[in-house]
Nucleic acid binder design. Structure first.
Length: 445
DNA sequence: TCTGGGGTCCTAGGACCC
DNA sequence: TCTGGGGTCCTAGGACCC
């Protein structure tokens, strides 16, 4: 009797043997980073803006309570923000990148490097396979406490047998922090059923706006409804294997496994909105050359080379509709005779592409460069008909990278990048780069 | 006046090959 | 008179993520 009840109990614990996942997600990450260096802003409403100070991309709970909308345009919330004395920051990616590294290093110290998958700047999946079942809850709290102690960043932790369920658990942990203490486990089938019934389809990881609308039209409104649909149906209606995986994950069958870290990017892009409309080809060239330099740096940082360069420009929309939309994007790409990571070999083709798509008399608001068909640098295929790139070129590139990294952005650059940069984005409220620049260290008096 | 900047994966369909 | 079919590679586009 004892034995059989044990078996039936463990069959309800899919975490055992099947592995289990935690998702650790930083709370209001960018805002938290700013607060680490401005402790007086603790408990005060603050927001962080996107590049160009366009949108709100991070809000503290206090700002959220004031009704400041996430991902909404800044100007729409400006009134509320000013009236309530909300502190506003432009985004400071040097700072966030560095803080992110510290958080991830802490997680690696806790569960081992091989059990951490960095999912985004502020999120990581952990494989908790090796943690005994009855210690998982305690361990989840330990993760939260340690990260906060070591880095000053508060996080929420969701634990479940699959990544998709862990995401849902994390959502709950974040929603009612006082009650959950930022940790939620979704382990037994009873808990899963209860929670999935309360979760709307648009709250599921992997269901975006397009599928959410379709699902609701079909009368599938909760995550529980979706979980109970047949796999064949998902295959036919929700993007093939993607839909099948999603349903399995909701049922507790792990179908999205841990990814190895440090996989090389298959595409590298640098794109920006301008600080104002640009009509002049010469100015566009400055911008595109600058973006090409940036993209090439990213390429070299991962020791890769690219064979395809594409350039796009976005004109101001012509209609005056109330919905926000871009004008028709113009783009063009070229396949290079051989893969390269040298800025000077990429800028030329990029300039040519820009000339091809540029139209005189139009006003442009955005441009970008994308590098793709990426291969590892050491295996760059030589092209028989081209002279080999000279060693001096490689030497020059690494010298430029070193100077730019250790001094200021763009201390050394190619002439085509321009020196005025009148078009560059607005960043009126950027905090100092306390953790990555000696001259911007926080002072304690 | 003012609306970010990256990325990934998957599928369908066409070109081409034998 | 009868006129294949399977495989691979590539690209465009759609969907998603934070």
């Amino acid at each position: 009797m004892d034995k059989s009840s044990n078996t039936s109990r463990s069959s309800k614990l899919p975490l055992q043997g099947a592995g289990g996942y935690a998702i650790v997600d930083c709370n209001s990450f960018y805002c938290s980073c700013e607060r680490v260096f401005y402790p007086d802003l603790w408990n005060k409403p603050i927001v962080v803006l996107s590049n160009n100070d366009g949108c709100i991309i991070s809000r503290s709970d206090e700002a959220k309570d004031l009704g400041v909308k996430m991902a909404g345009p800044y100007f729409q919330s400006k009134y509320v923000i000013e009236k309530n004395n909300v502190k506003v920051f432009s985004s400071n990616y040097h700072l966030y990148g560095d803080m992110s590294m510290r958080v991830m290093d802490t997680l690696r110290a806790l569960v081992g490097k091989e059990n951490v998958e960095v999912y985004s700047v502020d999120e990581a999946f952990l494989n908790l396979e090796k943690i005994p079942f009855d210690e998982i809850e305690k361990f989840a709290h330990k993760i939260r406490e340690t990260v906060e102690q070591w880095t000053g960043i508060s996080v929420s932790v969701g634990v479940a047998p699959t990544k998709t369920l862990a995401k849902i658990a994390n959502h709950i942990a974040k929603k009612d922090k006082a009650k959950t203490k930022c940790v939620t486990l979704l382990i037994t089938e009873e808990e899963q059923q209860r929670v999935l019934k309360q979760t709307r389809v648009n709250g599921i990881w992997g269901v975006g706006g397009a599928y959410a609308n379709k699902l609701i039209n079909w009368g599938i409104t909760s995550a529980w409804d979706l979980r109970n649909m047949p796999e064949e149906w998902a295959h036919a209606n929700m993007g093939g294997v993607v839909g099948v995986r999603l349903i399995k994950e909701l049922r507790g069958e792990p179908s999205i496994v841990m990814k190895k870290e440090l996989e090389e990017k298959k595409m590298i892009a640098t794109t920006r909105m301008f600080g104002r409309l640009v009509t002049d080809l010469y100015e566009l060239k400055e911008a595109v050359a600058t973006y090409t330099s940036r993209a090439a740096e990213k390429l070299r940082r991962q020791h890769s080379a690219a064979k395809t360069v594409s350039v796009f420009i976005v004109p101001k929309e012509e209609s005056h509709s109330t919905d926000f939309s871009h004008g028709p994007t113009k783009s063009a790409y070229i396949t290079l005779p051989s893969a390269t990571s040298f800025t000077n070999e990429l800028i030329g083709p990029a300039m040519k592409l820009l000339e091809d798509i540029f139209e005189n008399g139009r006003e442009y608001k955005k441009a970008g460069v994308m590098l793709s068909s990426i291969v590892p640098d050491e295996s760059i295929q030589g092209n028989f008909f081209l002279a080999e790139s000279k060693g001096t070129n490689r030497f020059l590139m690494s010298a430029v990278d070193n100077v730019n990294f250790s001094m200021r952005d763009d201390a050394v650059k190619f002439c085509s990048s321009g020196v005025n940069k009148d078009w560059k984005m607005r960043q009126e409220y950027r905090s100092k780069r306390h953790s990555t620049r000696w001259d911007e260290l926080r002072e304690v008096r």
